[in-house]
Amino acid sequence: MNSRATSAEISVVLVDDHALFREGLREILESAGGISVAGEAGDSATAVRVVAETRPDVVLLDVEIPGDEVTETVGRIRELSPHSGIIILSMYDGPHLLTRLLSAGIRGYLLKSVHRHELISAVRSVHEEPSRLVLAVSRSSLARVEAPSAGVLSEKELEVLQLAAQALSNNQIARRLGLAEATVKRHMRNIFVKLNAASRIDAVNKALAASLIPPQSRGGED
């Protein structure tokens, strides 16, 4: 692990389970000037620990590292180092995964086929422009993210939304389905993103309009 970056440098943590790929990333970034690799990890648990120790400006995170599901890893990193901009690196160009990751709070999504100058530019942009998203994906995936399809709701999300349509609280839904309340909240966040909904009522109305869930009478329970 290299020494910490100077205050003038952008500090980066590399997370990928292939050491050779991390070595290539390190060479590309450090040869660009003004960027320093503060740490590396090959699995989710180590990634969370290294980020907590180094508090980097940017985290380059492979989408398929061993350990926790990638959205869980993103959530843990954001809790421990809120200022770190997370850029996902992936071989997969799919709108469903991209939507979930954007909902989790990533700042960028790059296919591993990008050129070195695109990678360097993404790291600098995420660091220098906190409100900017950097996406290097196909035009079709981006279009489907910008206009999410109601048909991408999972079976569990449909169950959650059906109970939400009955005006049940997250706690009541959790008890009904045998889930943790935090899991229900995560399902609701995903539903909002997929349906482009601003609230529970908006999500229910859009699902009803698309005939995703049957009409329900509203009312409390328990």
Rank of each mutant, 00 (worst) to 15 (best):
G75S: 14
P66T: 07
S11R: 10
L60N: 01
A136S: 15
V50H: 09
L119Q: 01
P95A: 08
E146P: 00
T99I: 11
R186S: 04
V13L: 10
M188V: 07
A8E: 15
L135F: 15
A167G: 12
A180R: 05
I65H: 04
S36G: 02
G94D: 11
L25W: 04
S199W: 09
T183M: 02
E129I: 11
Q162I: 03
V51E: 04
D16V: 09
V204P: 01
R144D: 10
L29R: 06
S81W: 07
A45Y: 14
M1D: 06
I86S: 05
G24C: 09
S125V: 02
L212C: 00
A52T: 15
S103A: 15
V152C: 07
A41V: 13
F21S: 13
S44D: 07
E53I: 05
A136L: 11
E181P: 04
L60R: 02
S121Q: 04
A52Q: 12
I65W: 04
H187D: 07
E72M: 06
I86T: 03
I106C: 11
T71Q: 10
G219W: 01
V58A: 00
D62C: 03
N2D: 10
R186M: 08
S121M: 01
F192E: 12
T6V: 13
E9N: 10
L110S: 12
V126C: 06
R139D: 12
S31L: 04
I213T: 00
V204W: 02
L111D: 08
L195Q: 06
R76L: 12
L133F: 14
H117P: 00
H96D: 15
N205W: 00
I213V: 00
G94Q: 06
F192Y: 13
L168C: 15
G33P: 07
K194S: 13
L119I: 03
V145R: 04
K185S: 07
S7T: 14
R144P: 02
A197L: 07
G42C: 11
V145M: 04
A45C: 14
E221N: 06
A8M: 13
A210T: 00
R100G: 09
A165N: 07
I35D: 01
H18R: 13
L135V: 15
V58E: 01
S141T: 11
V204Y: 03
G42I: 08
N205T: 00
A209L: 00
S113Y: 09
A41E: 09
E118C: 06
E64M: 08
G219M: 05
P56F: 05
G42F: 08
S36H: 05
